[in-house]
Amino acid sequence: MTWVLLRGLTREARHWGGLPDQLLKAGLGPVTLLDLPGNGACWQQPSPTTVRAMMTAARASLAALGLMPPYSLLAMSLGGMVAVDWAQQHPADIERLVLVNTSMRPFNALAQRLRPACWPQLLRIAAQWKNPAGVERRIHQLTCANSDALQADTAVWQQIRRSAPVSSANALRQLLAAARFQAAAAAPACPVLLLSSAADQLVDPACSATLAAAWGARHDRHRWAGHDLCHDDPDWTCQTVADWLAQGTSATSYKRPS
């Protein structure tokens, strides 16, 4: 089984932190990290303005690496939209999906997909986009509930931003792609696990619940994490995925008792 990890809006492979190593230690590897165009190793490329084009680029990247399908995708936020489009357009490519704090039309309303309470903070982030220290501290406050390593986290994230700066134009292109994306009504043809966070300030966890109900998929909700669940509690993330796999991912209607 090859796990492919896809991050969200303006984030890249290094933002997964220690999660890839923990997946390997849990016996869930091997793991391949992909950057969407405009982010990370691809920061100098223009970001597509559609999720479909992002998906096509990700698919081509794996082919260029010589990695053949089927793949298991673990994807967060915007990456989750890319993963769903991939599974719906090329079902033979995808063995299973794990979607973290994602949302999409036609299943979720705008006010759920991007909570109005976070809009002022997002505008402040946009206003100081070229200030790595200020931007990364605000992103941490907005996306993370676990602040135990705040100083270390933001120092690492500032270095990432300086070494591979996502342009404001690419950030807007990615936001446009996320806003425009509309998934097909039919559920992906593979098993799906949805993970959400009760304290997500960006995306209402009801989005994952709605997707799970529409697709007959399992939904596990973390009781205190923020939007960046994989940062806040990577142990819980790995264990939940491992439990899901151990119970047989073909039984997608299974839902863990809360």
Rank of each mutant, 00 (worst) to 15 (best):
31 V>Y: 04
115 R>L: 09
90 H>A: 09
206 A>C: 12
249 T>Y: 03
109 A>W: 08
62 L>K: 00
228 D>N: 15
238 C>K: 05
252 T>K: 03
231 H>C: 06
103 S>G: 08
66 G>T: 06
25 K>I: 01
28 L>W: 09
208 S>R: 00
48 P>N: 08
128 Q>T: 14
228 D>A: 13
10 T>E: 09
26 A>P: 06
254 Y>F: 09
53 A>D: 15
175 L>N: 03
36 L>T: 12
206 A>W: 08
71 Y>A: 02
195 L>Y: 08
36 L>V: 08
154 T>C: 00
88 Q>P: 02
50 T>Y: 12
110 L>A: 06
108 N>K: 10
47 S>T: 01
227 H>N: 01
23 L>Y: 01
24 L>D: 06
117 A>T: 15
4 V>K: 03
245 L>D: 00
165 P>R: 11
175 L>G: 09
226 G>Q: 08
17 G>Q: 07
34 L>I: 02
74 L>Y: 10
240 T>M: 04
226 G>V: 01
144 C>M: 06
199 A>Q: 15
229 L>S: 13
216 G>M: 13
101 N>F: 04
38 G>R: 01
71 Y>S: 02
119 W>M: 11
171 A>N: 02
133 A>C: 11
212 A>T: 07
175 L>C: 07
87 A>V: 14
82 V>C: 10
170 N>V: 04
125 I>P: 06
211 L>F: 10
